[in-house]
């Protein structure tokens, strides 16, 4: 796979993306305050930020789970506000909140999502068997997912997300809560998908993960994108040698209080 050229049309594009919530106790809360980002095919873009920075809200807007309050975004050229259904057909979305249906087996889960994506018959069954073999799930493919370990569940979730071979993958903290083996499986999977030309947008607060995986990184804090670029560009911009230093330097510059402790 050739590296994407900056002139290629972005698979993910967000411009001035905003999201506000009406909270019964806190009033109007601005979770995302105008984010711009571009992510190309065959590229992994990492949104790096602490809990509550706005990462998940941004990804949810791109996955059409939330509607943007302002701004625009498109996935694979399809506007999320104009044709959200087509957007959902073109993405694979995975997060800690997208649990598996516990009373379905692995095969039933994949068959359900496959049918909803328009797959049917032998083609669907062949694809299911391909994924079961690829993720080494043969030993438990007919077991209900409620009894699975976290690692097994993660494999099923990944298989579910890529079943329809989407051109765009949106992964919200994909390794959170996983042990080292399951994390490793996930990281290998993400690298394989990049090699296959998939555009991957992932959020994380794990610096090492971002350093290893991401072609470009956006540092998000307080609902704003503080900086973006390759790791080298960010280090150069902040004068720091490592990503955690980059991150702290950026959030301090953005007004992070000296008395406060960082959460990431």
């Amino acid at each position: 796979m050739n590296s994407p050229a900056p002139s290629d049309p972005p698979a993910i594009l967000a411009e001035g993306l905003r999201k506000s919530f009406q909270d019964p106790e806190r009033g109007l809360v601005e979770a995302v305050k105008g984010i711009d980002l571009r992510c190309l095919r065959g590229e992994i873009y990492g949104l790096l930020g602490p809990n509550g920075a706005g990462k998940t809200t941004t990804l949810r807007m791109l996955a059409t789970i939330l509607s943007p309050t302002a701004g625009r975004a498109s996935i694979d050229g399809v506007d999320v506000a104009v044709d959200p259904l087509e957007v959902r057909r073109r993405i694979g979305f995975l997060s800690t909140s997208t649990g598996l249906y516990p009373r379905l087996t692995v095969r039933e889960t994949l068959r359900y999502f496959g049918k909803l994506h328009g797959l049917a018959g032998d083609a669907l069954e062949a694809r299911i068997e391909e994924l079961v073999a690829a993720f080494d799930m043969g030993g438990y493919a007919d077991g209900r997912t409620e009894a699975f370990s976290t690692g097994q569940k993660q494999k099923v979730s990944i298989a579910r997300a890529v079943l329809h071979e989407p051109p765009v993958l949106i992964l919200d903290e994909p390794t959170t809560g996983l042990d080292i083996l399951a994390s490793s499986t996930m990281i290998e999977f993400v690298e394989e998908r990049r090699a296959a030309g998939t555009c991957i947008l992932l959020s994380t607060h794990i610096m090492s993960e971002a350093e290893r995986l991401c072609d470009r990184i956006g540092v998000i804090w307080g609902g704003e994108l503080l900086a973006e670029g390759t790791q080298a560009e960010l280090c150069e911009q902040t004068g720091e040698a490592y990503l955690d230093g980059v991150f702290m330097s950026l959030v301090r510059a953005a007004g992070y209080g000296a008395a406060e402790e960082p959460t990431a």
Binding site: A63, T64, I65, L85, R88, R89, I91, F93, S95, S97, T98, G99, L100, Y101, P102, F113, L116, H117, H164
Partner: peptide, 14 residues
């Protein structure tokens, strides 16, 4: 409660 509400939200159907 089972944590599958968001999974249902991303189904590729209206």
């Amino acid at each position: 409660e089972r944590g599958t509400a968001e999974t249902t939200t991303i189904l590729p159907i209206p």
